[in-house]
Amino acid sequence: MFKNNITALGLALGMAGLCMSGSALAQSAGETEYMNACAACHGESGVGDGPLAELMTVGLPDLTQISANNDGEFPMLEVIQIIDGRSGIRGHGYPMPVWGQRFKEALSVEIGAYASEIVTRGRILALAQHLESMQQ
């Protein structure tokens, strides 16, 4: 009987996780992407004070001011295009790391080219949504 209660509890907790809202999951995924791919340069809070910022040859933008610098609107498509490399932002004397390509390359061997494209786009969207949530 005790074993069944533990199993039921585990199932209930798992279902609760699945029932978490899509935006909460995206936010968590976006925050994870940010901390893994961006915080080293842009800082945990996004103001451009990451541990590698002092090594950069160009100034780092305050990512919390993207909306403020765009008449109060968050330019989602432009942000996505910067992250995935379609826009020519330069950092450290070279283009900012093209995260879309890096994400896709890491996955394509494991899950195939088409699936990796879908996962990569999801990761980039989650990251862009996290940046939107950081706006002041």
Rank of each mutant, 00 (worst) to 15 (best):
T7L: 15
P97F: 06
I89N: 06
Y94N: 12
L63E: 00
G43I: 03
T32D: 12
Q65K: 15
S87K: 13
N5M: 11
L127R: 05
P95M: 07
L18E: 04
G22W: 07
Q136V: 09
L11Y: 08
G91C: 08
T32W: 04
S133Q: 07
L127E: 03
Q81P: 00
S45V: 11
G10P: 04
M1H: 13
N4T: 06
R102Y: 09
M76N: 03
G100C: 02
V98C: 05
I6Y: 13
P51M: 10
L25H: 15
I111N: 05
S116G: 08
G22D: 15
F103C: 02
T32H: 04
A26L: 01
A106I: 04
C41G: 02
L11M: 12
S116V: 07
L25W: 13
W99V: 08
A106V: 08
G100Y: 04
A24E: 15
Q65C: 03
A12W: 05
S45L: 10
L55R: 05
P95H: 08
G88A: 12
L25N: 12
L55N: 12
Y34F: 15
L18K: 02
I6G: 02
E105M: 07
A40I: 12
G17C: 10
E105F: 07
C38Q: 09
V47N: 10
M20E: 14
P75G: 09
D84H: 03
Q101H: 04
D71M: 11
A115I: 03
M76D: 08
K3C: 01
Q135W: 03
V79S: 02
H42Y: 06
A29E: 14
T64A: 06
E44I: 01
I111T: 08
S28F: 08
F2E: 14
W99Y: 15
A128K: 07
G43D: 02
V109D: 15
A12S: 09
G91F: 04
G10N: 13
G88F: 06
A40P: 00
G85R: 11
L11W: 05
A37R: 06
D84I: 01
I82E: 03
